[in-house]
């Protein structure tokens, strides 16, 4: 038991040091590295998709497969919750 707690402390410390150094060494806040794709989307969302909202055009047009997977996850979660609680009510 004590060995496990020691291992957990070691793990947590390593991850904490990693996260803090990663946060300090990332590129500065407010200047993204390589926004070429996003600039393309911003400049073409009105002429290609016809929508004023860039985020919605990304969600439903440029990256529609992500939204399809998300809908699948939501459907699976609802099915799982209904399954668990139907079993519970009996």
């Amino acid at each position: 038991m004590l060995k496990r707690d020691f291992a957990a402390v070691i793990f947590f410390t390593v991850v904490a040091v990693f996260f803090v150094f990663a946060a300090l060494l990332t590129h500065p806040f407010g200047s993204p590295d390589n926004p070429v794709m996003d600039d393309y989307i911003i400049h073409n969302t009105q002429t290609e998709v016809g929508a004023n909202n860039g985020v919605t055009s990304v969600v439903f047009d440029y990256r529609g497969f992500d939204t399809l997977g998300e809908a699948t996850v939501l459907f699976t979660a609802v099915a799982g919750v209904i399954l668990v609680f139907r079993r519970l009510k009996k």
């Binding site: 009105q46 016809g50 929508a51 004023n52 439903f60 047009d61």
Partner: peptide
Amino acid sequence: GEIPGYLSRVANFNTGGVL
């Protein structure tokens, strides 16, 4: 099906295609 002009700031509801 209408396409708003480039950099237009007017909200036209009849745009967006399938969105």
